[in-house]
Design a binder for these strands. Structure first.
Lengths: 220, 220
DNA sequence: ACCCAGAATGAATGAATGTTCATTCTTCAT
DNA sequence: ATGAAGAATGAACATTCATTCATTCTGGGT
């Protein structure tokens, strides 16, 4: 499983089917979360309404409060989903059962972080929409920092292994991990806000450059 | 003038003064923009209301639509103000009339970007609140990318000078500038969302590390 | 002292939105 | 075939918010 990220891009297949369908709770929840992601990406978090989300999902307004208690909760669960998807994907790569070679694992991580799945505008929009509100909403901070901490630890561990393998001197794994994470976040931001100035290709080159400067023997 | 950023922190000095005051248009506009910044930082962009802003400014509700045509416009102008303040501060340093020494100029830039003025929670909150909406609002994208482009050029020019002075080999000024900008953005994000994990001190150390790796003769 | 341009006010308005719940419909065990 | 559990619906409700504008007030010019 290389691409962990699910496809939220597709619109609902609905056409003329007016017949009411009954589906298990978990499936409806996911439908609504997917619709929420699409709506945030298209209209911005502050413009998202329940009517908008449920219409996008092809369902009625009441169903949102049936499966999630409130709008607040739906938004919270959507953030949790996106956060776990992103960090889960990273962690899977970094734990590296699939890829024993450290150099290749680094490559795979970079591909995941700046590859197709994650840098879809949709996902990035959602990501930063919540970051924007995080300053005022401790709940969001908590969700993000929880998954973030684990990913940070795994990254530090990976860097530690690489430093040992390469015998690099005067390099602090923790500091480097912080820097690399920040760099990736910043590149995502650039891809979202100024896509004209920063292409995906160039973003990858910049990140690769950072790694090469730190671990010259492991990159290229 | 080292610290370009104005103080938005203070609450209104108003106490028991009920007397209506007439002030020039420009002053009222700034009052409202400052109040908007405080409100966004405290409640989040999506929760900001006109009543909230005008009350914070110690003025009546009608005045917002008198000086700005609409809420949308007030928000737009607030973003423009914050963007220009931040990038203006950077550019002033990078043009470097005050500081001829390149090494010191780099230091000053770093101090500005991760120093008191800019990394106040208020300013960062506003910054990322708009980034979060940028995906869905081309107006915001345009405002940011306009000021961003100029700052990017100045940074690239500064790096070019440093590369020449230091005789550094195999370093591309443009790519490095992109990386450095992204790194700073990412660190700001970390300071905002996970302040527990990332202290301001450590953020500065990480950024300094990045620069030292690129320009070893110019840092320390 | 007087006047008036226009700055400031805030109650009123209408539109939009989150949430509720009585009702309808689907499914499946019997 | 039948009934019941509960999934799904959407009209109705209460609230909140941006915007308007008739009215009040202020300060400088005469």
């Amino acid at each position: 499983m290389t691409d962990v990220s699910s496809a939220v891009t597709e619109a609902l297949p609905e056409a003329g089917s007016k017949r009411r369908q009954i589906r298990p709770k978990a499936e409806r929840r996911q439908q609504l979360i997917d619709a929420t992601i699409r709506c945030i990406a298209q209209h911005g978090l502050s413009a998202v309404t329940m009517q908008m989300v449920t219409r996008d999902a092809g369902l009625s307004v009441g169903i949102a409060n049936l499966h999630f208690e409130s709008k607040d909760n739906l938004l919270k669960e959507t953030l949790r989903f996106v956060a776990e998807e992103y960090h889960g994907g990273q962690i899977e790569i970094m734990e590296g059962g699939d890829i024993p070679n450290l150099s290749e694992r680094l490559d795979a991580l970079l591909d995941f972080q700046l590859g197709r799945g994650v840098t879809q505008r949709q996902k990035m929009s959602v990501w930063f929409a919540y970051y924007g509100e995080a300053g005022a909403r401790p709940v969001y901070q908590k969700i993000v920092s929880t998954v973030d901490r684990l990913a940070a630890q795994k990254l530090e561990a990976l860097f530690t292994d690489i430093i040992r393998e390469g015998g690099y001197q005067g390099v602090d794994a923790r500091e480097l991990a912080t820097g690399y994470s920040a760099l990736i976040d910043g590149l995502h931001l650039g891809l979202l806000v100024t896509p004209r100035e920063l292409s995906k290709r160039r973003a990858r080159a910049v990140a690769r450059d950072f790694l090469r400067r730190a671990f010259p023997k492991h990159i290229y």
